[in-house]
Design a protein around this nucleic acid. Structure first.
Lengths: 147, 147
DNA sequence: CTTGTATGTGCAAATATTTGCAGTTCCAAG
DNA sequence: CTTGGAACTGCAAATATTTGCACATACAAG
């Protein structure tokens, strides 16, 4: 169900207005699928509605994040990416050398994580953790480099 | 041992030049302690050497990160922070609502994390993970808000 | 001590993102 | 259907960070 109709309901019932810009942006995020940048969303939206502004895209994405409809994913030195929250809960392994991003299932990591930080009264976002480190290839290179 | 002499040795032996700017920046990071922003580093450095440029600070901090001498810590919507890597290994709990950052000991999280992602051939940065979520206070507020 | 040159720096412009503000629009109430 | 006002938007400027480039300098070799 990659239809964004339910999402627009969430916006309305949270007391926010349903503007054409928001609908276009929702459609873009749902249609494009996977990870998208604000710039990509804008490009898609402008095909239907040329006068939408980048700042509106950012503001709307931020709104969708706060409503839990999409998730923000930011890695150092590259534009933020967003994805619909209906995707399977998962975490990201971000390679600090090559920048590659790999997805891993949320479980059992989330459960372990939750238990460990619970002692601090903290409620982690269990469904979307960015783990930085080295992927297998870069780790191998690093070792041979040092030797 | 908050002396940065060893750090300058690391720079030299990694084949990088030991410029006055780099020494000033090292001193700033070690002297200021805790989490510092590029702007704070610049302010401190300029007390001794007024013509150092912000971009040099960024480039140097980046260099120090790649040498493992300091760690970068970035949270959405706020300037990056850096800290000397000699501090106790720990993770950060970042509250998505109030932005507060709390530190938790690296263990036992790091060990668990390493075991879980090992299956993907991934080598995580075990000493510095940013866990996003809600702190106790904001979580309580969120709940009362919904009710 | 001099010198060549790769490395590093300052500056200014580019990139990514946020924000202030004045004008526009959605939509609840009449 | 009209309308008032809070919510929203576009625009331009601010903020955080990176990058291209020409000039400067650390330092290895002579």
């Amino acid at each position: 169900m990659s239809c964004y109709h339910q999402a627009s309901e969430v916006i309305r019932s949270a007391g926010y207005r349903l503007t054409p810009q928001r609908l276009f942006i929702l459609e873009a995020v749902y249609h494009l699928g996977g990870h998208v940048t604000a710039e990509q969303v804008l490009a898609y939206v402008q095909k239907s509605s040329p006068y939408v502004d980048l700042s509106t895209v950012y503001r709307t994405l931020e709104l969708l994040v706060s409503l839990g409809l999409i998730r923000r994913f930011s890695a150092p030195n590259r534009p933020n990416e967003y994805e619909v929250a209906t995707a399977e809960p998962h975490h990201h392994l971000v390679c600090l050398r090559c920048g590659r991003v790999e997805a891993v299932p949320a479980e059992p990591l989330s459960t372990v994580l939750r238990e460990i930080v619970a002692a601090h009264g903290f409620t982690p976002d269990e469904t979307h953790l960015a783990i930085h480190g080295l992927c297998a290839e870069c780790h191998a290179q690093e070792r041979s480099h040092e030797a």
